[in-house]
Design a protein around this nucleic acid. Sequence first.
DNA 1: AGCGTGACGAGTA
DNA 2: ATACTCGCCACGC
Length: 121
Amino acid sequence: MSEESEPAGDLPEYAERVLEVAELIPPGRVMTYGDVAEWLEEGGPRQVGRVMSLYGGAVPWWRVVRADGALLPGHELGALGHYREEGTPLREASRAAEGHVPRLDMKRARWDGRTRTEAHN
DNA sequence: AGCGTGACGAGTA
DNA sequence: ATACTCGCCACGC
């Protein structure tokens, strides 16, 4: 009573917004944590990351990635499976090191939110 | 109230 | 390209 608390079963408004953006990202494309934060004009990359860590399971979490294109620690193979399935531009190691998980090709995979779905080839 | 931590990002060495 | 530092901001102890 004296203080406000989050109603169980519902998410904080900020979290809801973040998840909403995550769902907007078209398949084969990704957005960085920083981009999402900027797009929301609120919070920062770390806040977005926190939301994803807590509630990301309800949305295509693999489309929200780090700016350097590294896959999520602990979910690399899971994310990689989705990327291959969606045709997300990956930057496979030219060094052909086995066991080395490829990183995302941010240059091509990064989505600016222009609903552009156009060809990048 | 202070301190450490984290699904971050950019800059520097 | 990798490693490290600093800035950022919310949360937990």
